[in-house]
Every structure is written in C-alpha cells, then in structure tokens.
C-alpha cells in the first residue's frame, strides 16, 4: 500500500475544494464519481464542458468538477443551461441537480426543456426529501415515509420522475440507484453521446436526514435497501415504475432520436439570414 499517489480522477476535480462536504454515506459523491468516470472513458475535453447545478447538497457538484461551471439560483439550473446551450451549441451542457431543485421549484423549466428537446443533459440525484434544509417533505417523498414535516407519514402521492420525463418528450430516460455504479456510468456515457434532451435519475442515499427517520441510519443500510428493492427491467413502461419501499424499478426506459431545438433554431436563423424565408 502506497499513499503518496494521486487519485486517477484528481485532474477532473478542483483540488482546492476536495475533500467535499457531503456526509458520510451520502450518494452525491458516487454520482460525481460516475459522471467523472464517464467523462474519462469518453476522453471529453474539459474546456468544452459546462456543469450547471442548482441549489441543494448536490448543487455543490458545480464547484467540485474542474470544468466551466455555474452554481445557479434555486430551480433555474435548466434555464441557465438552456441559455448556455443556445449561445454556444458546441458546448456540452450537463445539469447535475437534486429532485427538489429540478422538480419542485424548477418543474416547469424541466418539462418545457424536455418538450422543446434542448440538448441539455440532466442528472437528477433523488434523495426523497429536502436534505440541505433539514429534511422537509418534497415532491418525490414516497407515500408513508416519515420526514420532519410529515412526522406521521407522508400522504401526498410522489412524482414518478421517469414517467414525467418520458411523457414530456425526453429522448433518453433512465433510472439507476447509486449501487448500480457500472450501469449508471454506462448510462451517463450513452447520454453524453446523444443529441437531444436526456434525463438520468439516480436514487441516492441520504442517511443523515431521510434515512434516520425511516429506520435506515447509515448509508450502508440505505444501499442494502436499494439492493433488496431494486430490479432491473430495461425498456419497461415508465408509468408503472413508481418507487415504493418494496420495489424500485431501475433501467433504461426511453432511447429515441429526435432533432434538437438548438439545431432547428440555428438552421432557422441561417435561413432567415439567407433570406430564404420572407414574411
């Protein structure tokens, strides 16, 4: 065992920011790890990559990735990313954010970005609650789960994120847990090679805030829950992929090809400039 060797991914991380502040057992580090692994395998140029993130624990990813990055206002990560992508379509724009940021306050941005098919890649770390602010119930909290604002059990039906993304028109939709690191890395690789709007949901453990109120005090216990409950079914019906304590359906759900918004936009601008369109 030798200690004085740097980690193979250290060039993809900002050395001044590492080690990160995420709790022991948190899955956000695994999401970042898999993302960097996918970048490394694709040999992507970090000068052509933009990482955009919103508010929340996972929002700090933008600061840790050694690429051009935005840490945006709450819920507006996709709105910022849309601007970046339309201004310079050469750039690879990846949004890494949480479920509260993308689907509660930023829900409208998400569905309209998916409808327009903007070439923005979205990775959503779903930890079932608002972890950073103390564990309030959020749009993805499963039924009967206990949080600080639902101490007797949640009675609101949660969003099924993959169904939402597929129905809104995303060209690539997948869901994995942080235990499926290999498949998650492959999914992110596949997503980065596609043109249109892509969405990967990562079920992430939050032992300190969500887990301890739901009888899973450590990250290991949450990962054991993922191992017990998850079943891989590729290209199954996303409307039946609801998350319960007994069953987490994971896999790829949608993989289709569609012309992206920024390509259509720049074609249209070209046609107008050449005066092919007159009105």
């Amino acid at each position: 065992m030798v200690q004085e060797v740097s980690h193979p991914f250290s060039s993809y991380l900002r050395s001044a920011m590492i080690p990160h502040i995420w709790c022991s057992g948190c899955g956000n580090g695994i999401v970042l790890n898999c993302f960097i692994h996918a970048l490394e395998e694709l040999q992507r140029d970090l000068d052509k990559l933009v990482v955009v993130s919103g508010i929340g624990c996972i929002g700090r990813t933008a600061g840790y990735a050694n690429a051009d990055s935005f840490h945006t206002t709450h819920g507006r990560a996709i709105a910022f990313a849309t601007g970046v992508k339309l201004a310079n379509p050469e750039l690879e724009v990846v949004v890494i954010s949480g479920d509260g940021d993308l689907f509660a306050i930023g829900g409208n941005h998400f569905i309209h970005a998916a409808r327009r098919n903007i070439g923005v890649k979205v990775i959503c770390a779903n930890n079932f609650n608002y972890g950073m602010t103390g564990g309030q119930q959020g749009p993805t909290t499963p039924l009967e789960a206990s949080t600080t604002t639902t101490p007797y059990g949640n009675i609101e039906h949660p969003f099924n994120l993959v169904h939402l993304a597929a129905a809104a028109g995303a060209t690539y939709v997948a869901r994995w847990t942080t235990l499926h690191v290999r498949r998650l890395t492959q999914s992110i690789k596949r997503m980065l090679q596609k043109e249109g709007f892509c969405f990967v949901e990562v079920i992430s453990p939050c032992p300190e805030i969500f887990g301890r109120r739901n009888k899973m005090r450590t990250g290991l216990e949450m990962m054991e829950w993922f191992r017990r409950a998850s079943s891989v079914e590729n290209f199954s019906d996303p409307s039946k992929a609801e998350i319960t304590s007994k069953r987490i359906l994971v896999g790829e759900f949608v993989n289709v090809e569609k012309v992206s918004y920024e390509r259509l936009l720049h074609e249209k601008i070209g046609q107008i400039n050449e005066k092919k369109i007159v009105w």
Binding site: F9, I18, C26, N28, I30, N33, V181, T185
Partner: peptide, 15 residues
C-alpha cells in the same frame, strides 16, 4: 475496481 467506482470520497483506487 468496484471500490473505486462506489467510493463517494475519491479515497480508494486500484492499479
């Protein structure tokens, strides 16, 4: 290399 991939803190790797 599962340990490398699953480590959230970039603290272990295998060569």
């Amino acid at each position: 290399s599962f340990c490398t991939a699953v480590c959230p803190d970039f603290a272990i790797f295998v060569v």
